[in-house]
Each structure stands twice: as structure tokens, then as C-alpha cells.
Design a protein around this nucleic acid. Sequence first.
DNA 1: AAATGTTATGCAATCGAATACAATAAAATA
DNA 2: TATTTTATTGTATTCGATTGCATAACATTT
Lengths: 340, 340
Amino acid sequence: MVIKMKMSDVAKLANVSTATVSRVLSQPEKVSKDTREKVMKVIKEFNYQPHMVARQFRTKETKTILVVVPDITDAFFSEVLRGIEHMAVRNGYQVILGDAENDPKREKEYTNLLLQRQADGMVLLTARMDQQDLENISNHFPMVLACEYIDGLDVPTVSIDNISSARKATEHLIHLGHTKIAHITGPMNVVLSRDRLKGYQQAMLSHDITINPAYIQESEVSFESSYDQMMKLLALETPPTAVFVFNDEMAIGAIKAVKDSGLNVPKDVAVVGFDNLKMSSIYEPNITTIHQPKYEIGSKAMELLLKLINGETLQKKRFVLNDKLVVRESSGANNKKVTP
Amino acid sequence: MVIKMKMSDVAKLANVSTATVSRVLSQPEKVSKDTREKVMKVIKEFNYQPHMVARQFRTKETKTILVVVPDITDAFFSEVLRGIEHMAVRNGYQVILGDAENDPKREKEYTNLLLQRQADGMVLLTARMDQQDLENISNHFPMVLACEYIDGLDVPTVSIDNISSARKATEHLIHLGHTKIAHITGPMNVVLSRDRLKGYQQAMLSHDITINPAYIQESEVSFESSYDQMMKLLALETPPTAVFVFNDEMAIGAIKAVKDSGLNVPKDVAVVGFDNLKMSSIYEPNITTIHQPKYEIGSKAMELLLKLINGETLQKKRFVLNDKLVVRESSGANNKKVTP
DNA sequence: AAATGTTATGCAATCGAATACAATAAAATA
DNA sequence: TATTTTATTGTATTCGATTGCATAACATTT
């Protein structure tokens, strides 16, 4: 049976005061065994559930944290979310998820939930809103950035080193003998795109390979857009023999374009992606990519946020986790078939 | 500047009572233009944000709805979520997302948020918890099921007709001349698996094809598990020439198994999936599948929930939306390449 | 036995916004 | 002008749980 009762009802039925009922729930050791059992019996019998909003109101704690993802349809984030959620639940917090749909305005709107005291803290997996606003909010409320970040911003951040990862990915292609290496970037308003581009450029320059400007193509974060950009690259007079692509979904788009042009991956064009999505080990050819420790990024970010919520100050603010180059078929480094 | 101020502070600064400030916010037409502007000026100047928990406490409305997905890593749900969220936001509600991780216990835990008045209503995209409990809760709180459902349960539901869809999918293979048609099912504790199996059986029987019991293999909802089941099917003395698979991710697993066995899809084994994920049109061979109107399922479910929350009674409780067979390469019905 | 300490419980204030009701001023009507 | 109606604002209560403080009951020490 479900009955909407309040604490005073329980108190009456158990012949105690509401204070005692409240203590039974939150500090049972303060209550004698007898009363505790008497109260618990009533609570169980009527399946009393405390009115959480009233409790939140009184205690000024929601025990809720807000996570904002740039795009919920991007498979990358689900594992980061798992990491966040597990760490949160283990510490008595629940998670609200906000989908910004790649819109900085919506991102900003979600931060209002903090100002309105609907959440005790916030993990942002996207950082595209106004930097000043963000800084402002983080000065007053617990906040952690993960995956994305803003240079020079004094907000705790968890991510990999995208520049060095991108360098690593590009160098992998260089070491395979490629010099005509293109890069399909993500949108330039996203820091990850800019950093991965930097890494690409660093790798090329440090190996004395001049970068053909036409080899750098900016794409939306989507299969289709990347497909189009790859088609452009293939249409060049001297098409690249290798491409480093912003992420795995886009790498699949690029590969499809190569295939549809009657060419072969990796023989005609070698491809390296980023993120190591599940799909990347399944797709054919399966994709050489940079592995991100997604779950760990999430749980680390939540760990930091919990510290902030508990009033601790973080001596270390920037956490750079280890990535890893995962070599598979699409870059042509080996020909072993990977079976699941 | 971010300052934590309360309504009484605004009232003092604007030289009015809190009642007036409250009215400016919720029923501005009740306040004279002069005072309204005076109050709004203060609100804007100090960026006052009302304490939502206090408001929720007072009004007994959270303007929040809870959505529980069986598995957040399943790409199928992200578009359903979009549908839900858009409809919710358009009506002034926000969405909390719960990930049950395929665990009926966690599903049940999330329903407690309703009992604790943390949400005004609930959309369940999974229905595996105890039926009695579920019915009980839905008798006291607004609740809608979507995608999954429970037969004979009097809770508003939005979904497709999985039996007829599965029949359609199987018949597609039959019409292509196949008789040795296998079915890789999902877990039998999920109603969708049972219904799709039923559809498969109906199609076979109505075309006088005897079902080889070994042709029915139960699989987890994962690429890997489906791969294994397909391997089993191929190891049979008389392997099937066609397979209808529970969903698209699993269909990819099955296709991979066929390929890894040195066989061709669709020539040696035709494959049909379910859901029409984005990936299904990208994978090679791209996958013949049943399209579900994901976004519409979500928005319709939210629409119904809003009606329940507003106290309307639904005359129609079961909403069956239209699915569609999408014929692509994996079933061998045509050989046209589909480019994005 | 008196004084002191300990434990268990209750009383009553409190959190911040919404709102029923009262009060007042201004406008409309008789 | 007196009276009623309408518009605007304020006063004071309320929502349900938590918690500081007071008190009562009991145990321990001197």
C-alpha cells in the first residue's frame, strides 16, 4: 500500500515526537533501542517515505549533482556518465543529466540550476559558454570540468592531454611512412578540436613535414559531415594517403567516403580516429584510435566535486589522465584480424 | 556578480513586501506597472534567482519528471530521450535521467523518487520490476511506460507493435525465399524479446515452415553475446541461411560472426535487425531493420504524462505507433549501395 | 543522601516562497 | 456626495522535516 503520510503521522502512531522520528532516520544511535524499534515498526508498516523536498529545504542540501553533456547522442559520454554516477551514488548523491545539444545557450541555462539551489554541484562535460560567466559561477558553487576545459581558467579539470594524444596519433601515421597526412578537425569553437589540431601540427612540424593547408578540413561532429570532408580531400589533385580524424564516429564517416570512392582503407588511405568507442573495434576495418579512460575521467571528476562540496580545497586542480594509442586495422600497421 | 539573496532582500530593496515580489514573478499582471518595474529592476540588478527548493516545497510541485532507461549505453534511447525532453521543456518541466543498468532492483529504487515527491511523474523505458509494485505506484502517481510494457497492466503505454514488426521482419526473409530462418532473441525476461520471438514464430507457422528449435538462440543485449550465438548457429549441421536478430547492435555482432567464418552477408546468410540505429545505415553491409519512431515515442509518452499530471484521465491508454521495415543490403533484397 | 554526569526525549523555531485574507486607495456608480 | 466596486499591496500563515535548547529520567560519584 502506498499512503502519503508525513513525519508527524508516524510520530503520533509511535507515540513519540517528530524530533525522535527524525533522529531514528538520520542519527539512530541517538535513540534508545526500544523507541527506535517502535518507530521503525510504524515506518515499515506504513512504508513511510520522508518528503525529500522538505528535507532538502531544511538542510539546504539536495544531495543531487548536475551533469551537463554537450550531446547525449554521442556514444562517448555514456561511459563517462557511468563513472560519474557510480561515484555519486556510492557517496549518497543522485545525478541529474542535462543535454546541452551542443548549444552554449542551453549549457548556460543548466547552470541556473545551481544558482537556484537545485543541485549541490555540477560536472560540465562541455565548456563552450561564456568564460567569464563560467568562472563567476565556479567561484560561488562547486564545479568541475571534465573532457573539455578552458585554458587559463581556474576550475578543477579532468581530461587527457589532447595535444599530446593527437601528436601521438599523427606520429603513428608518420612512422608508417606517410607524409601526405590530412586532418579532419572538429568545430573550432570546441577546445578539443583546437588542441587535436595543435597536436597534429606539432607532429608534422617536428618531423619536418610541411602541412598542406588543404589537408586540414573542419567538420561538424557527425558521420555525415566527416564523410563530406573526406570526399573533398579525395578530390584534391594530390589526395592524402593518411588522415587523422577528430573522433571515431567521424573516422567511420571518412572510411565510408574512401570505400565509396572505390579505394581501400588502409591500403590507399590510412585512418586514425579518437576516443575508442565500442563501435571502433567492431567496424570493418576496425579503427586505430586513441583510447580515453572514459569511466575514470567520470569517476575522478565526481571525486573532485565531492571534495569541493565538502569544503575541501584542492591543491591540485588539473588532472591529466593517461590515454593510449590502440593500433588496429584502419591505419595499416598490422593485418591481424581482431575478433571479439 | 553572483550573490545569494532571498526574496525578502529583494522586497526590502524595492520597498515592497515579499508577496509583491512573489507576484511579480508568478502573476505579473496582478501588479501595477510601476511596482513591477521597480521590482524587476532590483531582480535584474542583483541577478536574484528564487530558491527553487523552497518554491517546490511550498507549491508541492517539482516541475521535474523522472525518466528511467534500462541501459544508457544503448544508443536506441538517446533519441527517445530527446523526444521526452523537448516535450517536457516546452511545458516547463525538467527531466531527471535514471540509468537502471538493466537491473530491476535499481529500477525499483528510482521509483522511490516519486514516493519521496522528488518528481511529479515518471516515464519508464523499462518495465522489469515487480508488476504488483509497479501497478501500485501507478495508482498513486503519474506514470507512463514507453518502449517496454507489461501485458494486462493498466498503465498508459506508448510503443510499437513488436509482434507484428517481428512478423514483418521474418516475412521479409520468407518472401526472399528463405526457409532456414533462425532467430537470435534478447533476454527472455524482457517483454520485447518475448514479443519479437512470437512474431517470428507466427510468421514461420503461417507460412507452414517448421521451426527448428536449434534455430532459436537467446542472447544478451550485446554485440559480443550475439556474435557467440551466431557462431553456434553456423556450427549447426544445417546452418540457417537467414537470421532475424533482436536488435541492430546484435545484428552487427551476428554479421561479424558470419564474416569471421569466411561467409558473406547477405549471400550466405541474410540478416535483419531491429530499431534502425544510425549505425545501421553506416555499417557495411548496411542493415535491413525495423524502424521505430523513437523521437515520437518519447514525445508522445511525455505528452500523456503531462495530461496525467494535470489530472486528466486518459480514455485511451495504449498507444501503438507505426514502425516500418527498412530494406537495406544485409537481407539481400537489393544491391543498391546507400550513401549518406 | 546529595551532587553531578549521562542519556533520551520533547518543544518550538526555522528554512524561503506562496497565498488566503485583510486593508487601503482609487475609480465607478447611484 | 455617499456607496459600491475594483485594483493594488501588505500581513501573517503555511508547507514538512531538522535541530538547538530545555527537561526529565536515570546512573554514578562523593
